[in-house]
């Protein structure tokens, strides 16, 4: 059975800088993501993965090519129209969590819902449910300053999923976390993808995350170099143990993007 894609990138080219300093960060990238897929976008620094994530997230506009989000073409849209697309279809998880330090966990999630136009009552209900879903039911009124790195990332995930977006884009979701928290966050993302048929795309350097993914896309020099499903992800260097329920095989060696 062929599933309809939820996010498509067609021949994306992105030029950055001007004049002699102009570089082509993306040189014609195409990819398709489907509901329920947990995909990793990997590559060394400067490969263009964050630029691609920004374009897929309708935050940057491509120089050429098109992005189709939930059937809506993002090309040629104004900044406000792109913001509207993000509001309706996308959730974001950032490397540095990007929580509001003056608001507690509950209010951080409620704020994202307020931005999306949810009523105060509905926002409060959804925010609490989302935080409980990520295991933070006991830290609803804790401020980011009092949370551990893992807890902050869970708040960020709760914020990203609270409005039930079809697509969640994560930028290095585990890079600031220790091994234990990194695994816990990946398990959580994997679960969110499977349970809610949500599309999750995570940019990462971290080979420990590979075992959790359905697909691994490797990007280098602005081009997709290799694509594999999680089980077939390229191997090299570091030994990792696949989690129970993951899509790969136990004990398989993963490619290490140590130069990233």
């Amino acid at each position: 059975m062929t599933r309809a894609p939820i996010l498509e990138a067609r021949q994306i080219v992105k030029e950055l800088g001007e004049g002699n300093a102009k570089i082509q960060a993306l040189k014609g990238v195409s990819l398709t993501l489907h509901p329920g897929e947990f995909t990793l976008l990997m590559g060394p620094s400067g490969s263009g993965k964050t630029t691609l994530l920004s374009i897929l997230g309708c935050i940057l506009s491509p120089t050429s090519g098109s992005v189709i989000v939930a059937g809506e073409n993002a090309s040629g849209r104004s900044a406000e129209q792109l913001a509207d697309l993000r509001r309706r279809h996308l959730g974001f998880i950032f490397q540095a969590y990007n929580l509001f330090p003056t608001l507690d966990a509950l209010d951080n999630v409620k704020l994202a819902l307020d931005v999306r136009g949810f009523s105060a009552e509905e926002a409060a209900k959804r925010a609490e449910e989302s935080l409980r879903a990520v295991g933070l039911g006991h830290r609803l009124h804790s401020h980011p300053g009092t949370l551990s790195g893992g807890e902050k990332q869970r708040v960020a995930i709760a914020r990203a999923i609270s409005s039930s977006p079809a697509i969640v884009l994560a930028d290095e979701p585990t890079s600031a976390l220790d091994t234990e928290n990194g695994h816990a966050i990946m398990e959580l993302l994997q679960k969110l993808a499977k349970d809610d048929q949500r599309t999750i795309l995570a940019v990462t350097h971290d080979p420990r995350t590979i075992p959790y993914a359905d697909r691994v896309i490797e990007i280098e020099d602005g081009l997709i170099k290799e694509e594999a499903n999680g089980a077939e992800a390229p191997v090299e260097a570091v030994g990792e143990t696949r989690p129970a329920g993951g899509s790969g095989k136990t004990g398989r060696k993963r490619k290490q993007y140590a130069n990233a």
Binding site: E80, D84, R86, R87, F94, N98, V115, R116
Partner: peptide, 16 residues
């Protein structure tokens, strides 16, 4: 500014 950028990335309108 970074918080406002986060709001914008989350889909907030400029008006918000």
């Amino acid at each position: 500014l970074s918080e406002f950028a986060t709001l914008r990335a989350l889909g907030s309108s400029a008006q918000y």
